[in-house]
């Protein structure tokens, strides 16, 4: 109960702050997208500070519950990043991810969570600039949408 109240109160309060900052959670696969993010860093490509990364071995590791849970706890947007199809370090973990995320996108739509709040992107280890662009685009979209309200905000 206490946790719940904290989350909800936090959502309300954040909305009131003039300079509201979105929280964008990213699940990035170790071999491509996480390495792509590192390349963006090593190349000093600045991007929106809204993003927080959880490293997973493969985008196929991402359980849809991990995405729903993030929204439930007040995250404003979720990004899942994997290797391009055909390039998966584990051959086809990203296919498993693709299938599952198709369902996630559908269900988030049913639940009324705006489309821009969730993205699945294939970002290779050499695509630091694409990582930068995706983060900036998503963060800008989240600022436009404001805090994620699931009917209760």
């Amino acid at each position: 109960m206490a946790q719940q109240l904290t989350a909800e109160t936090a959502t309300e309060e954040r909305a009131e702050v003039a300079e509201w900052r979105p929280t964008l959670l990213a699940y990035l696969c170790n071999w491509c997208s996480y390495a792509g993010a590192n390349l963006a860093g090593a190349s000093r490509m600045p991007y929106d500070a809204a993003i927080r990364v959880i490293r997973v071995p493969c985008s196929g590791r991402v359980d849809p519950l991990m995405i729903y849970k993030a929204f439930e706890r007040g995250v404003d947007g979720v990004l899942v990043g994997g290797c391009h199809l055909g390039d998966c370090h584990y051959s086809e973990g990203n296919y498993a991810c693709q299938g599952r995320m198709t369902l996630v996108k559908a269900l988030l739509k049913a639940a009324g969570i705006e489309e821009g709040r969730f993205r699945l992107e294939w970002i290779s280890a050499s695509e630091g600039s694409i990582f930068q662009a995706v983060v900036n685009e998503m963060a800008a979209k989240l600022r436009e949408l404001g805090p994620a309200r699931m009917g209760d905000g």
Binding site: Q4, K69, E72, L103, L107, A111, M150, G151, D152
Partner: peptide, 14 residues
């Protein structure tokens, strides 16, 4: 609690 209920029902649908 709405959010917990949301998680249950969305997870179930998934």
């Amino acid at each position: 609690q709405f959010r917990g209920n949301w998680m249950w029902n969305i997870g179930r649908a998934q």
